[in-house]
Nucleic acid binder design. Structure first.
Lengths: 193, 193, 193, 193
DNA sequence: CATGAATGAGTGTTCATTCAT
DNA sequence: AATGAATGAACACTCATTCAT
């Protein structure tokens, strides 16, 4: 079967993602990943040089998918900043729903010791769309005059924390709630008359 | 000597806090804590049952101090919600400045595997002042009609992420910046006319 | 194809010899042998039961070739012991030159843990010509009255150590040097008037 | 007990020496050393950075003792070269008797992959007395005109091989035998009239 | 026949924890 | 009370060997 090999690699990546997201990188044993992936412990080392490499591949893969989600369908030419912001917001929502552990993993390991420079750069890269949006918005006097990475932090930090609450069951993800949160985030970053 | 013992305990707590904040709980070795604390490795086990206990004590202590900071001087009777909000905001700011590693540690371990139920509850408890503030504000039609823990998440998440940027040197903590951030956070949670 | 199979077996033997000689048996991985031999790792197990067997086959083969070299052209009927000794000496010299890694491998693994009894016996067997020569020489009062295996040890030990020096580049193999060494070895084992 | 700590280190060194000498460095597992030494596996790492370090410490220690044996009581001022040579020979004999596994270990690992440069230098250093002796002997026209390291190889190689035979029980170490071997080695390196 | 992906026992090493001092 | 040497279970990782293809 041609998919067998790729299958194993994916099983390892998936198992690693779940365990890293749930327990953290340092608290996850390689044999535990192997067991969850349904492969032998040695098999992991056929696909990844070591545990750190697996962590970095996973990190970059998640960020790549995240960036993809934010970019695809972005109304770049629109003059409606709010519409663009909503694209980002609901893009992130759908990303979290489609990639159950990805954002959790990214969030908890965004500044972890095992990350390579490439991984760190990927993080900046993934948010470059938002960065650009905020910069443009500031020149158009629509977005608050704060450093763009600060604005990203406000938006991203809020979102992450809310995401956790929802995942933990402390908040129910209803359309109304999401609408309220989106409005809140928007009001946090925009200029008010 | 009673103070000597208390001194050792504090040295251990301080060393543990710094290392847990900088490297993470799992990546920190107990002997490393002992060395930084200037005590023998075995001494740690005279004051704390095990590494997890030390982690939990530290977590609860930090949150206790955090809660204290938010509570002390709170203008509970004021009718000016904005003033109350500013108290929270600048309380958090001064807390981070006075407790260099505390918020970092809390942030990175807020949902760690080693936390006891008591620690988790302490987290909720520490934010209960904010919770109350938001609930009252909602009845007064000043605060957005979102679940209080959601509002906390927005405020706290933003603040944490910004704190990281500042600590990493990517953002400079100037009075203007803090004023801008405070306004942003306020606009995120309040109702706009 | 019969030759193809034999070809593979020889490739494996050759690769194994080189790596065992250079790195040692224990420090050589089977997949490394496979790679050097240009065959799949599994193929090795088609020709050899396991790594130990490969080591033993190699050991015996090298010793067999060594014995062959010493035997062929030996002036058995000569009354000139020195001439016979020179045959052994220069036979060993030419063997080392024609079998770059064989003596190295033999030397470093002459008493290795993986050797079977048969391999050990082969070692004695390979030197039986020398043994006989020394025994005869002793009865003829030409060779020193020491146990034959002791005389072999003196001759063989010297030769091996010199061989290493030459291979390591610490000594240059010139005809004069070889002549001097031969004389030295001969003086070590013969009776002096 | 003051000797307890030093005792452990010595137990580890002794156990390591025996196992490395008998089985070889690569074929010896660290837990096996620990077991033979009667200590926990982790204890080895309190005294030695890693297995390689243990190997190098052992190598240097053995060579140090060897050099000491050769140096102590050496009749440096004697004009009698034969007497000096006998000092070396019987020094080596007594060294092998007093340090059962040391020479075996040195011999089998004299060019092993794990040796540091310092260890390699120590090897040269340990034989520097012999080197000097041979060089002086050559100028005095007593020693054969061969490179000194070649002469060392002849002497050392013979001795090593004989040592193995004796240790394996294939040769009995009697005074007569040793006298004969000494004479043989001397005749190997000296100039004959 | 030949392969090389897959395995898991075994390796060297770390570290939370204990305990004799 | 305080220590830190000692421990051994658990870790990340390797490699001889197997077997489906």
């Amino acid at each position: 079967m041609a998919t067998a090999a790729a299958g194993k690699e994916n099983q390892i990546l998936q198992a690693g993602l779940i365990l890293f997201a749930e327990r953290g990188f340092d608290a996850t044993a390689v044999p535990a990943i192997a067991e969850k992936a349904g492969v032998g412990a040695g098999t992991i080392y056929r696909y990844f040089e070591n545990k750190e490499t697996l962590g970095n591949v996973l990190f970059q893969q998640c960020l790549g998918r995240f960036e993809q989600t934010l970019r695809s369908g972005y109304p770049a030419d629109s003059e409606n900043s709010r519409e663009q912001f909503q694209h980002f917001f609901y893009g992130m929502v759908s990303f979290t729903n489609e990639n159950e552990h990805a954002l959790c993993f990214i969030r908890n390991h965004a500044h972890a010791h095992f990350l390579s420079e490439k991984s760190t750069n990927q993080f900046v890269q993934a948010l470059s769309g938002l960065h650009e949006f905020f910069e443009k918005g500031k020149t158009k006097q629509i977005i608050r005059n704060l450093p763009a990475n600060g604005l990203i932090a406000i938006f991203f930090g809020s979102f992450m924390e809310l995401h956790r609450l929802i995942r933990a069951g402390h908040l129910e993800e209803t359309p109304e709630l999401m609408k309220g949160i989106e409005a809140s985030c928007w009001d946090a970053v925009r200029i008010h008359d």
